[in-house]
Every structure is written in C-alpha cells, then in structure tokens.
Amino acid sequence: MDYNFNFAAVWRDFDLLLSGLALGLALAMVSIAIGCVIGLLAAFGMISRRRLLRTVSSVYVTTIRNTPILIIILFTFFALPQLGVRLGKIESFVLSLSVYAGAYLTEVFRAGLVALPPGLREAGLSIGLTEFQAKRYVTIPVMWRNVLPSLSNNFISLFKDTSLAAAIAVPELTFYARKINVETFRVIETWMVASLMYVITCYVLAEILRRVEHRLAIPR
C-alpha cells in the first residue's frame, strides 16, 4: 500500500473534535443521572406488591431493551414532534439516552435490591425509621455501593452510544469527524483520530471509575 498519511487537516480542526468529545461526555453524564432516577423508580416498581406498578415497569424495561437505540433516537427526534412534543436536538437525544439507560439500570438496581439481606430493612424499621427512611438511609445506599461496578460499565457504554447522536446532527465527536472527513477526504486519518479519542477516553474513564469504586466500597 502506498498511502501518504497527512494529519494536518485533522489537526486543523482538532478543537472541533475536542469540543465534540466534551459534549459527548456531558450528554452521557446527564443521561446516566436521569437514567438512575428512572431506573431506581422502575426497580422499586418491579419489586412492588402492586401488580399495576410491576406491569408498568416491566413493560417499559422489556420494550426499551428490545428496541435498537438508534430507533429510539430517531423516533424521539422525528416522531414525537408529529405528536405535538417539540424538543431541540440535544434535549431529544438526552431524553432518548436517559430512557434507554433507565431500562438497563432498572435491571441493575432490581438485582441489587433483591440481593440485599431482608434483615437490613427490618433493622431500619426496628429503630423506628419509616419505610421511606429505611430505603433512603439504609437499603439504597448499600445497594448503590454494591452496584457501582455495573453502573461504571453502563456509563462507559452510554458514552460510546453518544456517537449515535450524529444521526440527528448533534455536534458531538462522531458528527465532527464525519464533517472533517467530508470536507478534507482524509478518511483514514480522520476516523483513526476519532477512534483513538474514544478509546483513550473510555480507558481513562474506566480507570477513574475504578478508583471511585474502590474509595466508596464498604470497608471489610
């Protein structure tokens, strides 16, 4: 192969790629935060004694987990406005990613909750905490620490999924890479740099999260 690498075109717009990367990280962070709230509520729905709550939660989880995320993104962006819900590109994408994350996190939290010894909640109640306080101060904090590793994996996975936002022209890393590619025809260089940026970011994220997990782990 006789190819002359020329990264100049990519370096010229490197700040665009960096800004795209930053937006991607921000999208993932906001989405996992909202997804955690949805996931926690749906997880309690799944283990609720009320059939209605169980049904609603399980329909949500089953539907979302069996729909490709790109379809969710396109549906939210193109179909919701037809139904009268108008959102900007970024809001629309955050909504899609949050709802998607929520479904996966529901399962993470549900598993975390059912794995707790029942005595934990009972001990909370026995000192006079209400059911809500027992959840807030005892079961959720313990479950939270137990599921941190899965949460980290989910976050990294969500960050990679932000590349799909390019499909609705959200200016994140993949969007800019495509733009540079089209404008400069430096196909190999552009996608090489973009890929490397994803790889390095994910690797660094994993390291940071591993340390956070270690610090927050319950001492034994």
């Binding site: 005595g119 934990l120 000192i127 101060y137 005892v138």
Partner: peptide, 12 residues
Amino acid sequence: GMAFQHFNLFPH
C-alpha cells in the same frame, strides 16, 4: 428495640 440473630448492622 430489637436485636436480631444475624445482627443486621448497616454495613455502610
């Protein structure tokens, strides 16, 4: 107040 067979302390 109650003390349990398996202690049930809050581990965190």
